[in-house]
Amino acid sequence: MISESEVYLVRGSALEKIVDRVAEEVEARVYIDGVEVLRISTAPSMLRELGVGCALVKGFDISEAQVIVERGNVMLFYATPGASRECKCSDDVAVSAEKIFEMFSVAERRAELFKQTGCFHFAALFTVDGELVELVEDVSRLGALLKLIGRAYSEGVDFRKTVLVMSSRAAQEMIKTATSVCIPIVAFRGAPTGKAVEVARSCNATLIAHIRGDRYSIYSGFHRVLPRVKT
């Protein structure tokens, strides 16, 4: 997922030729029973998980599906349309305010590809007690999230009892994707869009953003963050 490239580094007025590490990406396409449902620039790894995650988010039952990866194309056969993936998140989970900081710190330490290139987003899934379940890095923030969902599904993770932590900003697409599998608490390093806040509130999801140092903002689902916040 990483290659080397000769570059010229400028420091003040000095010019130096060095070797830098850069991220690789491919254009991947996901097909479900012959119909293209996703085209995305992504890291060349975990394409099977990308296809599985995409199918789940789009509401397909893939318990009997066959997945084939060939030349950047991910093809799923025998996937059947399931029930709507819109999910009202349950209120029976909560996380301590301090755990959010700990989760983000753990994810940052484990994000090796970002450290090497500065070009990768991470998506990490934790239990509400702060145990890391899965972490995926990708040049695409959506790719990272779909691959994370695909891998976690394959390992039997119960999304309804997890916390999603991402290094990106919180766009509505990220919130829709996470809540489609009923992840109740989502936390982002960057800022949310207005549409992201609307989607989170409509799904009863807890949206945390602007994670910086010892502070962050809660835009919806305040009741899941302990100690409880006065509104």
Rank of each mutant, 00 (worst) to 15 (best):
D33Q: 05
E198V: 04
A107N: 12
I2A: 01
G72A: 03
E6L: 08
E4R: 08
E198N: 09
R85I: 01
A209Q: 07
V165W: 14
Q116K: 15
R110Y: 14
A65E: 05
I62F: 07
T206D: 11
A28W: 10
R110V: 12
E112T: 13
I149C: 05
M46Y: 12
G59T: 05
V186S: 14
R109Y: 06
G59A: 03
V95Y: 09
R189L: 11
V10L: 09
V7C: 01
S220G: 09
L226F: 13
A28R: 01
I62Q: 03
C89T: 13
I2S: 02
D92T: 05
I18R: 14
A170D: 00
L47N: 01
V163R: 00
L9G: 00
A14V: 13
I175D: 12
V197Q: 11
L76P: 09
F114E: 15
A94P: 00
V26R: 00
I183N: 04
T162S: 13
I32H: 01
L125M: 14
E131H: 12
V136N: 08
L38R: 04
S3T: 11
S168N: 08
G51R: 02
M46A: 10
Q66W: 06
T127G: 15
S96Y: 11
E49I: 02
V93Y: 07
E49W: 05
G194I: 09
E173A: 11
E155L: 10
Y78L: 03
E6P: 00
K230P: 07
A178K: 05
Q172P: 04
L56C: 04
F77T: 15
V52C: 01
S13V: 08
F77G: 10
L226I: 13
G72N: 04
R141S: 15
G53M: 04
L135H: 10
V106G: 04
S168L: 07
E131M: 09
A171V: 08
L47H: 06
T179Y: 08
L164Q: 10
V22P: 00
E98C: 02
A200H: 09
L142V: 14
I175E: 12
E24V: 03
R201K: 15
V139H: 05
I149N: 05
G221N: 08
M75V: 06
V93G: 00
F60Y: 15
M174R: 06
D33G: 02
A209D: 05
A97C: 08
V7S: 02
V26H: 02
S220Q: 09
I100C: 09
V93L: 05
T231E: 12
